[in-house]
Amino acid sequence: MAVAAVCLALTGPSTPSGALVSEPLPLPVGAAQDIVPNRVMTWNICNPCGSAQNLGRAADIATYAPQVIGLQEACVRDVEEIRAYLKTFYGLTYHVEYGSVLRNWGRCGGLPWRAGGYGQAILSAAPLADPVTVEYPDGGSEDRGYLAVTTTVGDRPVRVFNTHLAQRQQESFRERQVAVFAKAVARHEHTIVLGDFNAVPDAPELAPMWSLAKDASPECHPAPGAACETTTDWHSKFDYIFLRGFAPRDHGVHPSEYSDHHSFRADLEPVQGR
């Protein structure tokens, strides 16, 4: 990996956007050395925030190197660039599936008749199978939906979901979206749900999710006074890792200068007997 970095410093890497980047951003002390088994992450990477953020986003992901990552507000072009940086600079190779629900020049650039795909993405160190993208019947002010795949976490096959619900002031839309989403999640006993739900834990529209699963932050629940760590720059918890058939061993919320959301990661273990 070090030799590759030296070569790239001399020639510049080839990225999907065509930008030349001479060297990676350094990782902090204590950063992961390789993919961490049983670690998952959810992160709304912010859009439109510009592709210039992608090198920093890759460094933030490499710092924790989760086995599975769910990204929201993800442009296909941005994710391809992030994956290239992760592999080239940090030696981390991820498979990917996209759950684009919108093609929009303003969101993701490209020619007006070839606008970039925008929505969800799931990255996994293990191969991905049986991808399903569902667009909610009514996304509110912008198309929204979810992506589901089957992959491996630790050594267990698992169905992973990634969603982004309607914007903050659109509770009625989120209520209808959760009704659709919860039915899909409930079909799977071993399930990891990642996403930006745009709602605080005690929001009524999240009740169907809490009835199915627990958040990877054990102290966070919808009861008044619960200790839920905030995941956004405006000090709200909007980002969740809901678990069925898994329990958290450790978790963390990590602010980033490259997004208005913090990444939320959890180290998991299977629930015995399930």
Rank of each mutant, 00 (worst) to 15 (best):
D202W: 04
P218D: 06
G195W: 05
G225P: 02
G195P: 12
S217R: 11
S211I: 02
E219G: 13
P204S: 05
C228T: 07
C220N: 01
P222A: 08
L194V: 07
C228Q: 02
I192A: 08
A186V: 12
P204L: 00
D202V: 01
H188K: 00
W210T: 05
K214F: 03
S211F: 08
N198L: 13
V200N: 12
P218E: 04
A227N: 13
M209H: 04
S211W: 08
G225I: 04
L212P: 15
R187A: 09
C220G: 06
G225Y: 09
E205F: 00
S217L: 13
P208Q: 05
L194I: 09
A207F: 03
D196K: 03
D202A: 02
D215Y: 10
P208V: 15
H188M: 00
D202Q: 02
A226I: 04
K214D: 14
S211G: 10
S217D: 15
W210V: 05
H190S: 13
M209P: 09
P218S: 00
W210C: 02
L194E: 08
A227G: 09
P224L: 00
L212V: 13
K214T: 15
P218I: 04
A199P: 08
D202R: 03
E229W: 14
L194A: 05
P222Y: 14
H188W: 01
L212H: 15
L212E: 13
P208D: 04
G225S: 02
H221P: 09
C220K: 07
A199W: 01
V193I: 14
F197V: 08
P204F: 00
L206V: 02
C220P: 10
P201H: 07
K214A: 10
L212F: 15
A223P: 01
P208L: 14
D215M: 09
A207E: 14
D196Y: 05
A223G: 05
D202S: 08
C228N: 08
A227Q: 14
D202M: 01
T191C: 15
A223R: 11
E229C: 10
A223I: 03
C228W: 00
D215G: 07
A203G: 07
H221T: 11
G195L: 04
W210A: 08
H221G: 15
P224Y: 01
E189C: 07
M209G: 11
A203T: 05
H190M: 09
P222V: 03
P208W: 12
P201V: 01
K214P: 08
R187K: 15
C220Y: 12
A226Q: 01
E189F: 06
A223Y: 06
E219H: 14
G195R: 09
A186C: 13
C220I: 11
P201Q: 10
A227L: 14
I192F: 03
L212K: 15
G225L: 06
G195D: 11
P208A: 06
N198D: 10
L206S: 04
S217H: 12
G195K: 08
L194W: 06
E205C: 06
A213G: 09
L212W: 15
P201W: 02
A226D: 00
H188L: 00
A227T: 15
L194D: 09
E229K: 13
L206K: 07
C228A: 03
